[in-house]
Design a protein around this nucleic acid. Sequence first.
DNA 1: AATGAATGAGACTTCATTCAT
DNA 2: AATGAATGAAGTCTCATTCAT
Lengths: 186, 186, 186, 186
Amino acid sequence: MTPEPGSRRGRRNDPDRRDRIIDACLDVIAESGVAGASHRRIAEAAGVPLGSMTYHFAGIDEVLREAFTRFGTEISERFETRMAAASDLESAREAVVAIILSDVYGDPRELVLSHELYTLAARDPAYRELTSAWMRRSRDALEKWFDPETAHMVDAIITGVSIHRALDVTDRDPAEVALAVARITA
Amino acid sequence: MTPEPGSRRGRRNDPDRRDRIIDACLDVIAESGVAGASHRRIAEAAGVPLGSMTYHFAGIDEVLREAFTRFGTEISERFETRMAAASDLESAREAVVAIILSDVYGDPRELVLSHELYTLAARDPAYRELTSAWMRRSRDALEKWFDPETAHMVDAIITGVSIHRALDVTDRDPAEVALAVARITA
Amino acid sequence: MTPEPGSRRGRRNDPDRRDRIIDACLDVIAESGVAGASHRRIAEAAGVPLGSMTYHFAGIDEVLREAFTRFGTEISERFETRMAAASDLESAREAVVAIILSDVYGDPRELVLSHELYTLAARDPAYRELTSAWMRRSRDALEKWFDPETAHMVDAIITGVSIHRALDVTDRDPAEVALAVARITA
Amino acid sequence: MTPEPGSRRGRRNDPDRRDRIIDACLDVIAESGVAGASHRRIAEAAGVPLGSMTYHFAGIDEVLREAFTRFGTEISERFETRMAAASDLESAREAVVAIILSDVYGDPRELVLSHELYTLAARDPAYRELTSAWMRRSRDALEKWFDPETAHMVDAIITGVSIHRALDVTDRDPAEVALAVARITA
DNA sequence: AATGAATGAGACTTCATTCAT
DNA sequence: AATGAATGAAGTCTCATTCAT
């Protein structure tokens, strides 16, 4: 049923708009960085009028915060799916390797967005809540297969190896990743 | 008679000015991020007039690039000093732990600057040259004590553990760091 | 109640603002040249805030282009009016003389603006479109009284004589203009 | 003889420098317009240090004035050469046609520089001295073959036809030029 | 409810000129 | 005599946000 115009429910005529703005914000950040994520650019990417931005969000900070919240959630969900699909300790180790080689390293968008978030978190405690929650979910997923202490370390090695593979122009042997995971989970 | 620095007459010859601007740039980035590192703010932090910025540097990008080049060099030197001071395998492991606990984690400035650089490198190949060189020097220093493959992994665990300790609000047991280093170098 | 123009409340709706900026731009060019036609100066001449300039126009080039488009149109219209008012060949010749003596030569603003446009057109094909259209309209108006080849020549003599009278400090006999027109239309 | 260093004549160690700056200035204007003719750009084009500019010239205006003085002289000399080479009335007419078709129309550099000068002259009486002198010399050269009044008109038709050919994208029949010259000298 | 017009702040950069050397 | 370091003014443009409609 189409809500009658003028009724209280009439406001819902574009319920996805807020969502689209958040997605567009992530696209813009992936493309041009947090520094390039302006109202104008996000509005254009989302296909909404400029005035929509400050109507739906209190300010640019709110848009950013929600965008990174969504990003963290998406990453965590994929992480959990991968770990949940493991059937034994060995396949859990392989899942970890796959996360490093396929997810972070394989996807420039995720690489860039992760680092933009890390940078915000390094300065701003509010964003540290986001990274903390993200890490918490990763560890929980890992603890299905590893003891808590090891889960911590596995999560750290995922981050460290991913960054080194991404930000070092030297070619690295993929087999090394498996070895690192084997050692840290020994 | 040497004119007092800062006096009107002293202004004309200031051979360290370029250096001071680069240092000031790092201070501003540490304080306000790359996004906040404007000509105006850097000039003010360095105590030089705005026009000096574009006299000494072709553009803001050149300032940033030189600042991060200096930052990478400084970090690498401290890293090398720490590793060179080790006397045997065990003290080398302890040096690695100290790097994680004292250097990156212990110094908010370094934490923030590292992430700002990572973020630039994630997007821009030119900055990847910097991170590559930085990683190359770290590995070289580690290879005095560890085989090349292990050196790679140690470098990765340094990065990963540092980030996790910095960006996770949950308290972590410092002993865990030593354990992670022990495992990865087993 | 209509808010008084210029009042704080009146500012919000000012549908003529774009037009006023274009007119102000022509004034500034006439006064200070294309080189002096800056956002600041045009904004001040139009009585609008600086930020208005880039809100209404994509850049200073767009302001210039629209200003000269308007100028060309205005000149052409006056030209056409003069030629349309002629009643026979002789009065057409007199109209041409009047254009030279009264319009271009008689009006410093038009003289300056014409040359600024010529200079842009000499370098930039986009502005050549403007001068071409302007010449096309002049020729069309002349062809009501002269054959096409002669119309071409009349238009050229208008330009040439006007420039010579304007840029030569030597006094010239106005009768010479009539003679030149007579010869070229012989 | 090499002047002794320190002697009054020692200043002459680069006597062409001033000349080279003036030539470079014309090159820069031809390339980027009067608006683009800055100290820096001219110095670079001339291969002299920036400080040379204000050492040899009181200011940018002096550079411009001297550059256009030289330009006017060069153009006049070529004009005079062409007219002096004519042997009778008919070949004088042909020389005029050649000036239009080959010199102004055929050389984008001259076209651009002429218009830059006209534009300055339209606004500034000081530059009108230059254009006046230029026109005086042209007329003098023409008066070898034409009566003073006709010389005036010929000079005007040269200017007018040249501009129309240069600033109109429509193709024009070269024969028209000869016809215009024939009529105006009838 | 929703939006586009509007604006002041501030971004990077170029410039002519001054001045100590 | 000659020059490169230096600077304040001003250039174009982008931005987050406000507000009348």
